[in-house]
Structures are given as C-alpha cells and as structure tokens.
Simulated scan of single mutants.
Amino acid sequence: MRTALVIGTGLIGTSAALALAGRGVQVHLSDHDPDRARMAAARGAGTEAEPEGRCDLVVVAVPPAHIAATLADAIGAGRGRAYLDVASVKGGPRRELEALGCDLSGYLGTHPMAGRERSGPMAASADLFEGRPWVLTPTRGTDTEVLNIALELVSHCRAVPVVMDADAHDRAVALVSHTPQLVSSMVAARLAEADETAVRLCGQGIRDVTRIAASDPRMWLEILAANPGPVADVLAAVAADLEGTVRALRALDAADGAADEAAAGLEDVLRRGNTGRARVPGKHGSAPATYETVTVLIGDQPGELARIFADAGRAGVNIEDVRIEHATGRQSGLIQLMVEPKAADGLADTLRERGWSLRQ
C-alpha cells in the first residue's frame, strides 16, 4: 500500500490516517467539514490535496447512516483499488450497497473495536487501535487483493484481525458495546436530578458503571439507529432480568412469605453476573486471571505514581493491573495494585519498608 484516501476525519478516520502516515503511506484526507480535514492534516495525518489518480485504499469513516451513499460515490468514481468502511455496524451498509447495484468485489466492511469518550480529529491517536480487535467481514465475492490490503491496514494500525459474518458482528456488538452504552447512560441519568448529598457519596463503583455515559449522544444516536433490532433484543433480555429483580426486591421489602424465593432470584442474577464477568477476556486477551490486590494510600502530587511503580520494580514484582480510587475533597487516594498471588506479600513488605501506608 502506497496511497490511501480517508473520507471522514473524526476520531477513527484520523487515527487510521495517522497510523498509515506513520508507516510511510501517502494519505489524502477528505471531509464534508473542511475545518476537520484541515485539523487532521495539521496533526500530520495526511494532506488535504486531492489524489492525482486512483488510491490503493479508500477508507470511509463517516457516520453509519452515510456509509452506503459515500461508498457508492467513491466506487462509482473509481477512487481506489480497495474500499473499506469502519462503521460500527456491518449488515445494513452492505445490504444498502447491494440495493444500489454497486460492484462489491472491491469492498470489505470492517470495524475497529476501539474508541474513547472524546471525538473529532483532535482526540485521534496513531496508537488508538494497538492490540485491539479489528473485525473484517469478507464474503465469497470479496476480492483476495482487497482482503490483503485490509490486513495490511490492520497491521499498520497494530490491531488484531478478527474475521466474522456481518450480521453475527452486529449481534455481537449489540451485546458487548451498544447495550452497555445505553445501560451506562440510564444509570447516569438517575444522577442528573439526584440530591447533592447523594452525589457526594459517589465512589469507584458508580464511576466504573457510568464512565462511557460521557460519550457524544449524537454519535451514539447514529450508531443505535443503524443497529436497532439486535440492541432491542439484548435490552429485552436485560428488561426481563430487571422486571424479575424489581419483583424480588418488592417481596423482600414486604417481608412476606415470598422473601426466601425473592432472595433466591436475586442471588441467581448476581451469580449469573459472576459467570458472565468471568468470560470477559483478561490481560493480553487470555482467560481472566485471579490476582491479589495490594492497596496503598497515595498522595495526589507529581511523581507519586512513578515512585510506587519504581518501588514495585525494586521488589521484582510485575504490576498486572492498576486502579486508582480518588478520595472526594482530599489530596489523596487509594491505588490498587493487582499482582500474582505469590508476589503480594513480598510487594506489601517492600512498600512498607519504603514508607508507604497500606490499607486492607
């Protein structure tokens, strides 16, 4: 791949352009908003100049509702050897392209499973996709050259290729991406009118659950509108669990003869939650490991994180994961260091010797 045209210079398009430009590909940028393309170019993602001829790759990174029309225009104009889109839904755009009578041998639907709460070219990063799954949805009619170019793009972005059927992909992201966004937003919406006293009690749990609720509503409305059926199916199952949970809680509140049955129903939901959470891939995509947590009081000041990691290194301990729980209104917090169980005692002893205050 020597040349690429990226149509749509938001977070995903600009991030892909930055990765390609960093690998020596001549990238041309196009956007319906010239200012966005100009910002992406200023960040080193490519040039706003029109390509002189056909590009090796055309990446369409526009909202789902505009994917088919944008691709149809590009294919009709012969702007590239291979055409990819990076939308978060795959079945709908392909069916729209088929209805438009497009030759789809040069097209491949893809979806990089990466993103962040902020959007736009200024939020883009060349390493956004590193280590993340990048779904490819080829069909029997997909040209081999197109698949190879797609794999080259994934390689340049240091992502991990995953081949799936388009409709299976849409059902999967409804479960692992689109429904969590809605549920997070629903929980966060309860805080909008909550008493200030209640809000001040927010801890790490509510922060974890509502983190993605900070995402752009307009962007998510476009995504959900492109995949409504599969998302509604997952939400219907969640709603059934919610309805049963509400009934169980009412029964417990009434303290009548149904209390034992209600408690059993609640326990079933919680245990199924344990089972599902245990299936979420852990470090490096492997099965979740069981770590021991060493919790340390840490000051909110420059150098503290570097110091505690350096002390862990002196102890010969690898930090497998980390979480910081901030103390509201205080210049301190708790850092939770997740390590292999056999390393926990040694790390705790070393940190105490180095003057750190540990917590249970």
Results as ranks from 00 to 15, higher is better:
Ala45His: 04
Gly46Pro: 02
Ala37Asp: 05
Asp33Glu: 14
Asp33Arg: 15
Pro34Ile: 05
Gly46Thr: 04
Asp56Glu: 13
Leu29Gly: 11
Arg36Phe: 11
Ala45Gln: 05
Leu29Pro: 11
Pro34Gly: 08
Arg36Ile: 08
Asp31Pro: 13
Pro51Arg: 03
Asp35His: 10
Arg38Trp: 01
Asp35Met: 08
Ala45Glu: 04
Asp56Thr: 02
Ala45Leu: 07
Glu50Ser: 12
Ala49His: 09
Arg54Trp: 00
Pro51Thr: 02
Asp31Ile: 09
Gly44Tyr: 08
Ala37Cys: 13
Arg43Tyr: 02
Val27Trp: 01
His28Asp: 06
Pro34Lys: 04
Ser30Gly: 10
Arg38Gln: 14
Ser30Trp: 10
His28Tyr: 09
Gln26Pro: 00
Glu52Asp: 15
Gly53Asp: 07
Met39Pro: 00
Val27Thr: 04
Pro51Ala: 04
Arg43Leu: 15
Thr47Tyr: 11
Pro34Met: 07
Ala37Glu: 10
Ala37Trp: 02
His28Ala: 04
Glu52Phe: 00
Ser30Gln: 14
Glu50Tyr: 00
Glu50Lys: 12
Asp31Leu: 09
Met39Asp: 07
Asp31Phe: 07
Gly44Ala: 09
Ala40Arg: 07
Thr47Arg: 11
Gly44Phe: 08
Val27Tyr: 02
Gly46Phe: 04
His28Pro: 07
Asp56Val: 02
Met39Val: 14
Gln26Met: 09
His32Arg: 15
Ala37His: 03
Ala40Thr: 09
Glu48Ser: 08
Cys55Ala: 13
Asp33Pro: 05
Met39Trp: 05
Arg36Asp: 11
Ala42Lys: 04
Thr47Asn: 11
Ala49Trp: 01
Asp31Ser: 14
Gly53Arg: 03
Ala45Asp: 03
Gln26Cys: 09
Pro51Ile: 03
Asp33Leu: 12
Gln26Glu: 15
Arg38Phe: 00
Val27Gly: 02
Thr47Cys: 09
Asp33Trp: 07
Asp56Ala: 09
Ala41Met: 04
Leu29Thr: 11
Glu50Asp: 12
Arg43Trp: 02
Glu52Trp: 00
Thr47Asp: 11
Arg36Gly: 10
Gly44Pro: 14
Ala42Asn: 06
Ala41His: 02
Val27Leu: 04
Asp33Ser: 13
Ala45Val: 07
